[in-house]
Computed example of a mutant assay.
Amino acid sequence: MSTDYLEVRGLRAAYGNIQVLHGIDFTVSKGQIAVILGANGAGKTTTLRALCAMVTVEGSIRLAGEELAGQRTADIVRRGVAHVPQGRGTFPELSVEENLLAGGFVRTDGQVRADIERFYGTFPVLGERRSQAAGSLSGGEQQMLAIARALMLRPSLLLLDEPSLGLAPMVTRALFDQLSIINAEMGTTMLVVEQNAGLALGVADQAYVLESGEVALSGPAHELAADDNVRRAYLGY
């Protein structure tokens, strides 16, 4: 029996007649951080969208042994999959606290308020701006809010699409440090699409490189970080 928490086999995805993913395979073990690297147009974002049933897919997507392919997006969310898309995806007119409450809307465990206070501790700037409209936050603050809102679901799997996009290097480093802490403290399995390969490989356990909708390289993150081909193509040395 497989010990992989997320197991994807033969995944194909298309937008209409345009095929983007061509039968990719990858796995993520429970509690791991896995990263997907690749050039623009390689299929990274489509991979995350495919896991959430946001594009037409073929193949198998199993989470903790349960098949997700063919399920509706809403049902996948209820199964514990949270997605932070490119562009953050916060509700700009709502306050920080209202965004967090929206993230925990489907929960019935009575711990929503406690988790809001927890994430104010994780991201103190959100606590300071709890009554402020999300759209008035800086890019880095909006990204923190988007991640905290996704975590309000208490997901078993967190999907992050380019979390460093548009952020200053110092903010990006602080954000990835927090992701590592959240992973360690909450045990949240994470699948991260990221252009900043050096930073992503530094926090990840497993890595996959996509090229033209196919997995070109895969392995432990530290091994790919030492791979000459990966270094030249993505790390710049």
Results as ranks from 00 to 15, higher is better:
A53N: 15
R62N: 12
S218A: 06
G121F: 09
G80D: 13
V203L: 08
L11R: 08
G135Y: 04
T3M: 14
L137S: 01
L165M: 15
L153I: 00
L6T: 06
D4L: 01
A42H: 10
S180V: 00
Y120P: 03
V77Y: 02
Q111F: 00
S164R: 14
V55A: 11
T122W: 12
Y15Q: 06
V55I: 09
A216M: 04
S60P: 02
L157W: 08
L63A: 10
L165G: 09
G70P: 08
L48F: 06
Y237T: 13
P169N: 12
Q71Y: 00
G110E: 04
I116Y: 01
V193I: 15
E66C: 06
A102E: 01
L235K: 07
P124C: 09
L165S: 15
L153V: 01
T3Q: 11
R49G: 05
T189H: 04
D227F: 08
Q142E: 12
Y237H: 13
R149S: 07
N229H: 13
G110D: 05
E117Y: 00
L101E: 14
L224W: 13
R107W: 13
D25E: 12
M170N: 05
N196T: 00
R113P: 00
V57L: 02
A134K: 09
M144N: 09
P85D: 07
A82W: 03
G70F: 06
E58A: 12
L137H: 08
V215A: 02
T122I: 15
R88T: 05
S131G: 10
I18G: 00
V192P: 01
L100C: 07
T3W: 11
G43F: 13
E98C: 05
G198H: 07
V84P: 05
T46F: 07
S60T: 15
G87F: 12
A53F: 04
A184K: 15
H83V: 02
G87I: 11
G202L: 10
E141L: 06
P163Q: 09
R78Y: 02
E141S: 04
L94I: 05
L100K: 07
Q195G: 03
Y237G: 09
A74N: 10
